[in-house]
């Protein structure tokens, strides 16, 4: 409902996504991140134009389980590679895979029906293929991407997060979040600017 009064809405009506604190260099961001971590906040994040080394420890980010999942994806590829070749080239089984399919026992250049050495290249390629697809797909999934309508992306100041500015965002859903107190806290960390991000 846009009316003429809408230009000055009461601040309390707008929901706040969180508080955005701007820093100009990775060093001050890192010091601030350590203090935010020690203050016990949980729903907060740093936003940087590149991966800042050591920031994971400063924030207390736990190691991702991504490699274990990717290992699983790789094993799936290995199995698919083996089963695909053993079924289609070494068996005469019929089975249902969306349609009925039947294997054909190829006899080629006197090789045994189940000639594993000749199957290795395809098994290897499928292992790599599924691991790579898994690494990228699961990384995006764990990161919650794509997310094109995130509140931060609507913030003008935040545009420089992909250029040369460093941000800490403490979200309002954090149990320790109190707008005025958290704002004071972020300012005490040496933030250049602290402002609210609308939800």
């Amino acid at each position: 409902m846009t009316t003429t009064h809408a230009s000055t809405p009461p601040a309390t009506r707008r929901r706040v996504h969180g508080l955005l604190a701007e820093f100009h260099d990775p060093a001050s961001l890192m010091h601030a991140a350590e203090k935010v971590r020690d203050a016990g906040y949980r729903w907060w994040d740093c936003h940087t134009p590149f991966a800042v080394h050591g920031l994971d420890q400063a924030m207390g980010v736990q190691r991702t389980i991504l490699p274990i999942l990717v290992f699983g994806a790789g094993l799936t590829g290995t199995s698919i590679g083996f089963i695909l070749q053993a079924f289609t080239n070494s068996s005469s089984l019929s089975l249902w895979a969306l349609v009925w399919v039947t294997g054909y026992p190829f006899l080629i250049s006197g090789k045994p029906l189940l000639s594993l050495p000749a199957f290795i290249p395809v098994i290897f390629e499928l292992t790599v293929l599924l691991s790579a697809l898994g690494a990228v797909g699961l990384m995006l999934l764990l990161n919650g991407l794509p997310w094109l309508s995130h509140p931060l992306l609507a913030n003008k100041r935040f545009l420089r997060a992909t250029d040369d500015r460093f941000f800490i965002v403490i979200e309002s859903r954090d149990p320790r979040f109190f707008r005025s107190r958290t704002e004071e806290f972020l300012k005490s960390l040496g933030a250049k600017v602290v402002e609210a991000v609308e939800a």
Partner: peptide
Amino acid sequence: LGWRGSNRH
């Protein structure tokens, strides 16, 4: 994809 440079990302 809505990348926002989050350090957790």
